[in-house]
């Protein structure tokens, strides 16, 4: 009953029954369920085989070579990129080492220069100190000499004054001026 309804609905939807429907024998309405309907088998098998063949040719002629080559290219690119990255890493490591070496060398050089400068300054300072000491000594010696000279001169002057005074005293007393005796007396008293 329901099958007939479906048929009528389909008829109404599609208009007229086509020529194709009249081919073959009609299946009784009380037949097996559609899944086991022998009338469908040849059609289903035919189109399934066609579909499988179509898929097989699409895959083998177009899709699989393309995907295979894409995957191979990708793998190649990835491995070459990885190799390049590894090379870059080695380079970077070498550059780092060179940089470290350069820094260490520069530091050593700087230390050396600083030490050298320090030494140079020290030696210059020492020389200047020595010179200054020598000058100070010279000045001091000169001063001492001058003082000694002045002292000697003063002593001489004292002796002269004492001799003159002694002579004048003797003369004023009317005594014979004995030069030699005066000198001895003055020297004895002044200690010089």
């Amino acid at each position: 009953m329901e099958h007939e309804e479906t048929t009528h609905a389909a008829d109404a939807a599609h208009g007229a029954v086509t020529e194709e429907l009249t081919h073959g024998t009609a299946v009784p309405s009380e037949g097996p369920i559609p899944l086991l309907q022998p009338a469908y088998f040849d059609n289903l098998i035919f189109w399934a085989v066609i579909a499988l063949i179509a898929i097989y040719f699409i895959l083998t002629r177009m899709a699989l070579p393309r995907i295979g080559s894409t995957l191979a290219t990708r793998e190649g690119t990835i491995s070459s990129d990885l190799a390049a990255a590894e090379a870059f890493r080695t380079q970077a490591r070498e550059a780092q080492a060179a940089y470290d070496r350069a820094v260490a060398e520069a530091r050593a050089e700087a230390n050396r220069i600083a030490q050298q400068t320090r030494d140079q300054i020290q030696s210059e300072l020492d020389a200047a100190l020595a010179q200054a000491d020598a000058q100070i000594d010279a000045r001091a010696a000169e001063g001492a000499r001058a003082v000694a000279g002045i002292q000697a001169q003063a002593q001489a002057s004292v002796a002269e004054v004492a001799r003159d005074t002694a002579r004048e005293i003797l003369r004023a007393l009317g005594a014979q001026v004995d030069e030699a005796a005066v000198d001895r007396a003055v020297i004895a008293r002044t200690g010089g």
Partner: peptide, 8 residues
């Protein structure tokens, strides 16, 4: 075209 339960 039209089908139905007895479509063969």
């Amino acid at each position: 075209g039209a089908g139905g339960a007895d479509y063969n």
